[in-house]
Every structure is written in C-alpha cells, then in structure tokens.
Design a binder for these strands. Structure first.
Lengths: 189, 189
DNA sequence: TCTCGACTAGAACGATCGTTACAGTCAAAC
DNA sequence: GTTTGACTGTAACGATCGTTCTAGTCGAGA
C-alpha cells in the first residue's frame, strides 16, 4: 500500500480498461477482467458507463485527450516548420512510453475489433482522424503551400504505417522509419 | 443457377470464409454464418479444418498465395528498377478489385482480432511479413545499394500505411498516396 | 441520529457461439 | 449390388460473456 488513497471507482475502471483493452485486445478482454483489475463491482461499472461499449468509448475519449496533450507539448518544443510537421512522431514516442504493452493504436484497433461499433465509438475514431487531418494540414502549409493537403495525406499515411509496424513487428524501429519516410515526403514539396 | 457445377464443400467453405472473415471481421463472424453462406453442414467444416481457427489459418494461406501471384504479375510488367520496387502498390490495387468489401489487410486484421492466435495463424502472418521484407529488400538493391534494407523498411512502412488508410477511411486515395510516399522515400537514396 | 449516495458481493439470467454426436442420404467405384 | 466415403440436417452440450437483480455495507453530511 502506498500513501496514495484509493481513487474513486470510475477512475480505477478507466485505468484498468485502458490497460486491458488496448494491450490484450477489446474483444479478448471480458468485463470481469476489468472489474477484477479495478477492484470494482459489476453494478458500479454499469451504473457509470451503461455497457461495455460505453466503457470502451469513454476510455477512447480519455486516450484521445491525452494523446492530444502530448502532441501539443511536442509541437511547442519543435524548432522549425519541418520539426513541427514531424512532431507527431516525437509525440508517438512519448506517448508509447506510458504504456509499452500497448499492441498498436487504440483507435485503429477498435475499428478492426468492433466493425459494428455504435455512433459513440465511431465518433471518437472519427475525431482522432479529424485531429490528425486538420493539424497536419496546418503544419504542412508553410512547407507545401497550396499542396498542403497532399503533404498532410503523406504524413498521415506514414503515421498509420508506423502504428501498423508495431502490430506487424516490422520494420523493427517504427518511429525512426516513419519519421524518415515523412521527412522524405516533405522534401519532395 | 449457372452452368457451373457446385464446387466441393472444402472450396465453398474457403470462399465463404474469405468473404465473411475479411470483410465483416473474423470474431464478428460466427461459424454458422460461414456454414450458411457455403451451404455446408457443420460436421463437414470440422472434418476438413478441425476448428474455426483452422479454417481461418487455411483462408489466410490461400490469401497469401494469391496475393503473391498477383504481385508477381505486377513485377513482371514493371519497366524500371523503381517500378519494380513500387509494384507492390499496383498489386494492391489489382488485389483489392477482387474483394472490394474487404475492410483492410487480412493478416493485420487477424493479428489484431486474435492476439492469442496459435502457431498456425501466427505463422501465416509471419510469412506475409517475411515475403514483404525479402522481396522489397531485393528490389531496393539496385536503387539503394548497401542501404537496401533501409529503403525496404521505408516501403513496407508506406505499404502498412496504405492498408491502414482503408481502415481509417483517410487518406481518401490510399494507393495513390502510398505510392507517392514510397517514391519520395526512394528518391532520398 | 437519520439519511443518502456510492459502492460491494454474489448469484443468476439469457444469449451467443464453438464444437460434437447421431442418424441418415447419395453418388461413384469396384 | 454392395461398399465406401463424402456430405447433410438437426439437436444438443458446455463454456463464455454481457448484463441485471437483490440484499446489504459504509461513510459523510444535515
């Protein structure tokens, strides 16, 4: 026992859900596993989130907010237009340190595992894509001018490829390779 | 009824399995759905494949062989060293025409949906990765010399990113964007 | 002291799903 | 004509899982 008091049930549930869903898999994780890890009773989970899907959706929302914050910090630290564009990869490195057991991307995993996901879950995935699209187009502007949308597409594709590389286990250094590819794409504008 | 005779049960099962597993999702597709689509009884499925996982593994093996054949043809048609390296993207375009409903990549989807997959399924995924790695390193040789392995990594990453783009629904033209990114990566060597 | 809200433990339900068992059909081979 | 083997249709089993129900505990605030 540390000196830290036990968090309220809702927070413990979200922490356990993130850990289990995004490293062992959403469908592969029974609700009971989350309950046991969070030391929370079933009734409490359903009182807070309504369903397993509700818990998944909220865990994704939390994740998106944290990812956005980490990315923000990396953008601030960037020293050039190119560094700002490529800061997604620094953010990815920082973000992954917090949960090294994560298989790959929580949002793309959710899209694969829950093809019939409700509007709530689909909405978070759409918000993630929208965030990537909007920000990268903005950062691409000073580098590619009118063709900023194309360069943003290139960087998103390299970002997707980096995430999938964790899933495939190849290339061995996903972030390094992804950053190199994105830099090469930017150099072509 | 066409003039074509009914194929044997094994073939019908594999066709129905490919269609269902890789467009609607593996875990989301109950065995009964495949049985009904193939018009085959349960006993026959288990006599041929032993289990649902066995059917998944065999469907993946078939898919890998067909993918390899399509890729081969595209490589033959290529007119330059660069075209040979980028022929994966032509192959992807040709391969996807045969099953437009496919969500994205059968192998990466299997890795996501079945995190505890047995050796049989994991082996096919490893074979797919090995095929990509080996071939692209070979095609990268005349373009990048000693650094062929790095260029192959770049192209695999762009390929992964193209596949994931179908899942994300963005970028809107995955193959076009993927090819452009891979070409830019090659130009840097 | 009483109340209220958050939370718990545990059992149970209902649905889904992978898998097996059983009895029987049918066509081709010998 | 008989045998063989592939295949069928149906029912059922056993396990898992999401979800709900019931009864009850506990601590803080009025």
């Amino acid at each position: 026992m540390t000196s830290v008091q036990k968090l309220p049930a809702r927070g413990r549930l979200l922490a356990a859900a993130e850990d289990a869903f995004f490293s062992r898999g959403i469908r592969a994780t029974p609700v009971d596993d989350v309950l046991r890890a969070a030391d929370v009773s079933a009734a409490t989970l359903y009182a807070h989130f309504g369903s397993k899907d509700g818990l998944v959706a909220e865990a994704l929302r939390v994740r998106l907010a944290e990812w956005q914050a980490v990315w923000d910090q990396c953008v601030v630290r960037a020293g050039s237009d190119l560094d700002r564009l490529l800061a997604v990869f620094d953010a990815l490195a920082a973000y992954r340190e917090r949960q090294p057991a994560a298989r790959w991307c929580a949002f793309l995993a959710a899209a694969t595992e829950l093809p019939d996901a409700g509007d709530e879950i689909a909405g978070v995935l759409a918000a993630d894509t929208e965030l990537l699209n909007e920000r990268l187009r903005h950062f691409a502007r000073p580098l590619a001018g009118d063709r900023a949308a194309d360069l943003a597409d290139d960087v998103v594709l390299a970002y997707n490829g980096t995430l999938a590389a964790y899933l495939r286990g190849y290339p061995a250094s996903p972030i390094e390779t992804g950053r190199r590819v994105a830099a090469a794409a930017a150099a072509a504008y």
